[in-house]
């Protein structure tokens, strides 16, 4: 059995990071992720916790040596279950492999934890993985565990970069939206002013006995 852990800090609030996380794929760092589907989703009426169950397919990157030893498919499937607690502001996702279960068990836990930083609200992203290959003492099992951990660590960094890219996109979209709202508001103010002017002219016209509209 092998463990690995990574932790990153995002200088964005919990709401932005979790919004980005739900739409993380595709991004320019995620060519290994082939598809993401939502299998089920529900909100607990008592706790308001949002539970999502997703099916993710990933292109495998096992070393050639391992490929010669074991029947490793080109595409691996993972099931991810996540819990988002809007009251406690916590997010946790647990992923486990659906493919190659006779050879290896990979369990990954990701958490998003808000914290107060020097420049406002930040979010800590903590990722842990546990890999256990069947036949724990064999050479092949050790190779499987090492390969899984190496690929996990490589993908973890890609995941961090990918999430940051999606956050940037969302923030820009929100700014664009804000700009649109401001433009709309300015337009409405102009229209209102125009209407008021028109109305006043109309009233003035009526007073003078002519139809000024």
């Amino acid at each position: 059995m092998k463990f690995t852990e990574n932790q990153y800090l995002f200088s964005h609030p919990f709401s932005t990071i979790t919004s980005a996380n739900f739409q993380k794929y595709p991004n320019e760092h995620s060519s290994h992720v082939l598809s993401v589907d939502i299998l089920s989703r529900s909100v607990d009426p008592q706790t308001s916790i949002l539970r999502s169950e997703r099916l993710v397919s990933v292109k495998q990157s096992a070393p050639a040596l391992l490929r010669r030893l074991l029947p490793i498919p080109e595409i691996a499937y993972f099931r991810e279950v996540s819990f988002l607690d809007p009251r406690a502001k916590s997010f946790k996702a647990i992923s486990s492999n659906l493919s190659m279960r006779a050879i290896v068990d990979v369990e990954e836990t990701c958490e998003l934890i808000p914290q107060q930083g020097a420049e406002g609200t930040e979010t800590v992203f903590r990722q842990r993985a546990e890999v256990s290959a069947l036949g724990a003492l064999s050479y092949a099992a050790r190779l499987v565990e090492e390969a899984a951990v190496a690929s996990f660590n490589a993908n973890s960094w890609k995941g961090r970069m990918g999430l940051e890219a999606v956050v940037d996109k969302i923030v820009k979209e929100a700014e664009g939206f804000q700009q649109t709202v401001e433009e709309l508001e300015a337009g409405l103010r102009d229209m209102e002013a125009g209407l008021k002017e028109g109305l006043e002219a109309g009233i003035e016209g009526l007073r003078k006995g002519s139809v000024g509209l």
Binding site: L55, R79, V81, F83, I94, S96, R101, E107, R128
Partner: peptide, 22 residues
């Protein structure tokens, strides 16, 4: 043929509460 894999995973690792996982 992923339906049985998903059904098995749901049985083996239901992950039905946030306390699941590490």
């Amino acid at each position: 043929n992923l339906d049985t894999l998903i059904a098995d995973a749901r049985k083996e690792k239901p992950f039905d509460t946030p306390d699941a996982g590490q």
